Amino acid sequence: MTSLWLASSALAHPSDDSRERRDAIEVSPHGEAWELSWSDTEERLQGSLRPVPPREGQPLHVSLDVGSFEGAPFTGPLILTLRQAGATHGQSVTVKRGARHWEATFVPESTGPHVLDVGFRTTRTKALHAPLEVSDSPVSRMVGWGLLGVGLLALLGYTVRGMLRTERAEPPAPPSPGTDAGQAPPPQIHAAPEPPAPNNDP
């Protein structure tokens, strides 16, 4: 009897882990997009996220399609929210169905783990969650490399300038011994040779 009571309690009150698994949207890479998929006994959701990977400060396009297994097709709006993992609020929009899909565009404001929430109501309110990772913007990387290059060029310029100043500041060669600094040495005076004595021999 105890075992039957525990089993019936587990079915009546599913654990948080099983509830999260039922509400988790599967995200899988496919070419230049991430495919989204989810289903229960009543509806199924399919869609895509692009570009891959999502980048900070760049538009992230979401395209979704929700269908019903039985009864009338689902045409109601979707509430889409992009938020940081662990946060309770984020960018949220209510999207009506277009010609075929529900579409929205977000601009991630930070890097790191994020969650795309998808909410809608049929026989009950459903809140689904798709985990995703937002990467650095390539523009910020280019700016960082540019600043590094400018710093290296400035360091090289200061080094060359210091070397030129050192060469110009070298003192002149010391004067030779016996001369005063800044004066030319005195001219050398050589005595003229004496003429030979006259020969008076007969």
Rank of each mutant, 00 (worst) to 15 (best):
A169E: 07
A87T: 06
P53N: 10
A191E: 04
L6I: 04
L116W: 03
P186V: 05
P131D: 05
E35I: 03
L64G: 03
G162R: 11
A24R: 11
L147A: 14
D117L: 13
E103W: 00
G149A: 13
S176N: 10
G47A: 10
P186H: 11
V150H: 02
S15A: 13
F120M: 02
P195S: 12
D136L: 14
A85K: 06
D17G: 07
G90H: 12
A72Y: 07
V139C: 05
T123Q: 08
S48N: 06
L148T: 15
T125N: 11
T81R: 13
S92R: 12
N200T: 00
T122D: 08
A10N: 14
T111F: 04
G86T: 05
G182A: 08
L80I: 02
I79D: 04
P54C: 04
H89F: 15
S140L: 14
M142E: 11
G157V: 04
V143D: 10
G76R: 00
L11S: 14
G90Q: 08
Q183G: 00
G90V: 06
A192L: 06
P202C: 05
T123H: 06
P202E: 13
A104E: 11
L36S: 03
Q58I: 08
H190K: 00
A197N: 03
A169L: 12
T125A: 13
R22W: 15
A184R: 12
A130H: 02
I25Y: 02
H101G: 00
D136T: 06
E35S: 12
P113E: 01
E35N: 14
D23E: 15
A85M: 10
S68Y: 01
S140I: 03
T94F: 05
S28T: 08
S37K: 02
G57V: 08
L36R: 02
D201L: 13
A197E: 11
P29D: 10
V115T: 04
R141C: 10
E56V: 07
V62E: 09
E35C: 13
D17P: 01
E109Q: 13
K126S: 03
V160I: 14
